[in-house]
Amino acid sequence: MEQPNKFKESAALIRKLSVTLFVFFIAIAGILVYLMVDPSLSAFSSKPETTLTVLETNEIKDDFDAIEDGIHLRTGFIADDGLMTVVNNCTNCHSAKLVTQNRMTKEGWSATIKWMQETQNLWDLGDNEVIILNYLAKNYAPEQKGRRENLTNIEWYTLN
């Protein structure tokens, strides 16, 4: 009767060992998987992560249409009445830079809108056209430059 008992004992020992090994392996695998997801172990850092996430979200939301020194940062447009109407209608197909680098009279801006409608698939602007034209004619009007301007914005440097 001694032999079967010994066998049972060994079997139980092996079972225990393999279970321990299995648990150990799962734990290691778990840690490895976690390290892949969060290599900086940020969940264990002192700052609560939830607060951080909320802060970031708020920042992005506030920043999206932020205005600094009278300039709409995202587009470079001058902040004035009609700004968002211009942003929403004039930056879908082309860059805001195409507007802000140009200077035209109200008549010129109007002709440009008409040209875009005739050839570039610009939609009917409806009541917004007046708002857009007033904004552009006021903020992006031509300046007299004469027949040749002085050199400006020179960055001086020593040449040896």
């Binding site: 140009n102 010129g108 440009t112 430059k145 301007e149």
Partner: peptide, 11 residues
């Protein structure tokens, strides 16, 4: 960019 009055397009 130098024309006066300014001309439309990339400056």
């Amino acid at each position: 960019a130098e024309f006066n009055p300014p001309a439309k397009g990339n400056q």
